[in-house]
């Protein structure tokens, strides 16, 4: 990494500098100089506001032709490569034939360590400050859970020295990728929808930030960029998917995508690999040999808020009859 790369990384959120490459490609950039740049006396150091006419008038992701999509991907790659000073790849990998994703979480094993939370943050380029977590782990009194889970009893802010604590029960919650997703039903712009492989995604460039989906989501899975999102350049994950973990602008909603950039390549989501107790399971619901189908058929499972008939594809299960 060169020194100039590091300079650029120092202020990752203010945006990339005008590169020769960018102008060669004929991008229309409205550059505005900010006082900080003028102080340094070097015009090239002036931070350019990332305003791109083509991006502004981009069509909804679902309506882009293959050529237009390709152009968008290259443009986004360029933008983020400049901003973070490292080579970024942005794909738009489509779903696989005959695959609908399902997720399993073994509540009899979860120890509430939050490794998944931070693996997710790293993988999916969530804002560090203001903080956004796609996964929220609730701690319950085991005794209370024996009478059924009442989410009001949950506490996401537990911080003992060690977990699991005696007599506690942990329940991580993220997007449940509902088959009848209330969020996509209410979205006024059609900026969020369910893909053929069951992943509920958001077109971050199409979302206007009205937050109706957040009102509608029964699982508190959707998170809003209240302020300018901030990911240190050295921590950015350069392996991106356009409707997955590309850095979000301020004022839009984001949520778990089952790590679409990984799972559409056949890989496990980051949280599955991070879990130290192997409580997290993932696979193809249409494949009778998959681990998700096995656990649905052989274990006691439940879904959150089943009475709402959202038909989640996120199944909690009891992998062990003796829990800890």
């Amino acid at each position: 990494m060169t020194a100039s790369d590091r300079d650029r990384e120092a202020k990752p959120s203010t945006g990339g500098s005008e590169s020769a490459d960018a102008s060669r490609r004929g991008f229309l950039k409205g550059a505005a100089t900010i006082g900080v740049g003028a102080l340094s006396g070097v015009p090239t150091a002036a931070k350019a506001l990332e305003f791109d006419i083509e991006d502004f008038f981009r069509k909804n992701f679902r309506e882009l032709s293959d050529e237009e999509l390709e152009a968008v991907l290259r443009r986004v790659e360029e933008k983020y490569s400049n901003r973070y000073g490292k080579q970024v790849t942005v794909s738009a990998n489509g779903p696989m034939e005959g695959v609908v994703f399902g997720y399993g979480l073994d509540v009899s094993r979860c120890v509430g360590c939050r490794q998944c939370v931070y693996a997710c943050v790293d993988e999916n380029n969530q804002s560090r400050d203001p903080e956004i977590h796609w996964i929220r782990v609730l701690e319950f009194e085991r005794e209370a859970v024996l009478r059924g889970i009442n989410l009001e009893d949950g506490n996401p802010y537990y911080e003992p020295d060690q977990v699991p604590q005696e007599g506690k029960f942990y329940l991580p919650v993220a997007c449940q990728h509902c088959e009848d997703s209330p969020c996509s039903q209410v979205c006024p712009t059609g900026a969020t929808w369910q893909e053929p492989d069951g992943i509920v995604v958001i077109d971050y460039d199409w979302c206007i930030g009205c937050r109706y989906c957040m009102a509608a989501c029964p699982y508190g899975a959707r998170h809003f960029n209240w302020g300018e999102p901030n990911v240190p350049a050295e921590e950015i994950n350069p392996n991106m998917h356009i409707i997955g973990n590309t850095p979000r602008p301020r004022g839009v909603v984001e949520k778990c995508t089952f790590c679409i950039q990984r799972t559409r390549e056949g890989r496990y989501p980051a949280c599955v690999e991070a879990c130290p107790v192997g409580a997290r399971k993932f696979g193809n619901l249409l494949d009778p040999e998959s681990e998700i189908r096995y656990l649905m058929e052989n274990k006691r499972t439940f879904v959150l808020k089943s009475e709402l008939e959202t038909k989640p594809k996120f199944f909690y299960f009891y992998g062990s009859s003796v829990t800890r």
């Binding site: 909804n60 979205c187 006024p188 979302c207 206007i208 930030g209 809003f224 960029n225 909603v253």
Partner: peptide, 25 residues
């Protein structure tokens, strides 16, 4: 209240993709 008011045209017919009639908004 909207996070990105500059994109409110995404709601308009023709220019945008209003999710009509599904979204009550």
């Amino acid at each position: 209240d909207v996070g990105r008011p500059e994109f409110i045209w995404h709601l308009m017919p023709v220019a945008g993709t209003p999710n009509f009639p599904h979204s009550l908004l």
